[in-house]
Amino acid sequence: MDRPSHFLRLFLAHESDLRAYVATAVRVPGSRDDVMQEVALALWKSFDRYDPRQSFGAWARGVATHKVFDHHRRESRRLVLLSPEALEAVRRAFDEAETDGGTVRQEEEALGHCLKSLPPRSAELVGLRYSERAGIAVLADRRGTTTAAIYQQLSRLRAVLGDCIRRRLAENHPSEASPATSLRIRS
């Protein structure tokens, strides 16, 4: 496999988790895409230094952490980050929760099934939030409730989807869904 193909295969397999990591590290949602672009570029430039025996996800998060801080310094501290200690805790949690590319694909498939099993009102909320990109305040206004209630509903929805994914993976591949994995994902 040539270098670009190899990089792309690994990057695409871990892109979602990497975006999630950047999202946790950067407190301003509007800056997360900018940081992610820089991280992707930095990963490609330094891909020669990647040791295939190591986890690509862990290596990428390490690079991302440096880029996040670089960006933070260059942009005159406009990016508000979590503290280094909190960021380190997040990195450890990501490392523990990391799955390989095959599992990611299975989880994606399971997510598709789980989304279809959502009750209509929950499905509508998810659709508005992610398809329409409706803000929390807008959702609260539409549903005649508070933003705290919307946060709560989204939190529960994610938990329900996470449980559903784990159930499906356990049904389809009992040996691959370890209890430890379930415990880490459960929220």
Partner: peptide, 29 residues
């Protein structure tokens, strides 16, 4: 941050939520 420092499970919850958030955004965005 204080909660994450006191209880590693909070960081795990943040990670789980962030991963699911990204997957939903990628799938439905």
């Amino acid at each position: 941050e204080a909660a994450m420092g006191g209880d590693p499970a909070v960081a795990s919850r943040l990670v789980a939520a962030a991963r699911m958030d990204q997957r939903l955004a990628a799938r439905l965005g």
